[in-house]
């Protein structure tokens, strides 16, 4: 799910933003269609509960509609949109009364390939362990992980979205991944 904006997409964004400023809900629908999968992925990466993603995503896109004046055009539109989404997801995590975690089995389907059932099961187990470990990460680690792994942003783009330095992005990413790897190794040694 790599996000590399083509020149045309940028132009289209500019046009859509102009129309949204004029109150055009059809332009908002087009923005939603363009970005919904990425925004769902990003929010899920931070909120970590599939049941809550849709509400937060809806809130994000409605904010785009009502607060488009806050987008000053100095950054690219997607950078601003991601910032809105990250902030909404973080606010949601802060506010929520935690519900029981979503069943993991619904989230365990990794791309298969021509592997036998044992390899597939091992891969599924790895996925389960890694996701359980992500649930335990602090939000500041989850947000960089989601922007890098799910959205495919460069360190520089992640830094722009979060308003932090590239060095901080790199060190948070490294720590997050190191924790995931450690948990995975520990779980494998235990089994």
């Amino acid at each position: 799910m790599l996000l590399k904006m083509s020149g045309k997409a940028r132009t289209d964004d500019t046009d859509l933003v102009r129309r949204i400023r004029a109150g055009d809900a059809e332009a908002l629908r087009l923005v939603v269609e363009r970005y919904q999968e990425r925004i769902f992925a990003l929010i899920h990466g931070i909120v970590r509960d599939a049941h809550e993603v849709e509400d937060v995503a809806q809130e994000v896109f409605l904010k785009v509609f009502t607060r488009i004046e806050a987008f000053d055009g100095r950054s690219q539109f997607f950078t601003w949109l991601y910032r809105v989404a990250v902030n909404a997801a973080k606010d949601h995590v802060k506010k929520r009364v935690r519900r029981p975690a979503a069943p993991l089995e619904e989230a365990d389907a990794l791309p298969g390939g021509a592997e036998g059932p044992d390899a597939g099961a091992a891969r599924g187990e790895t996925a389960r362990l890694v996701r359980a470990a992500i649930d335990e990460l602090p939000v500041r680690y989850r947000e960089v992980l989601a922007l890098r792994e799910l959205e495919g942003l460069s360190y520089d783009e992640v830094a722009q979205v979060l308003g932090i330095s590239i060095g901080t992005v790199e060190s948070r990413l490294h720590r997050a991944r190191a924790r995931l790897k450690r948990k995975l190794t520990k779980a494998r040694e235990a089994s």
Partner: peptide, 17 residues
């Protein structure tokens, strides 16, 4: 690890937009 992080992402419902 990377692949596991990327998996299990929910999709928006068809009528979301």
């Amino acid at each position: 690890v990377s692949a596991a992080v990327r998996g299990g992402v929910p999709k928006p419902p068809p009528d979301f937009a």
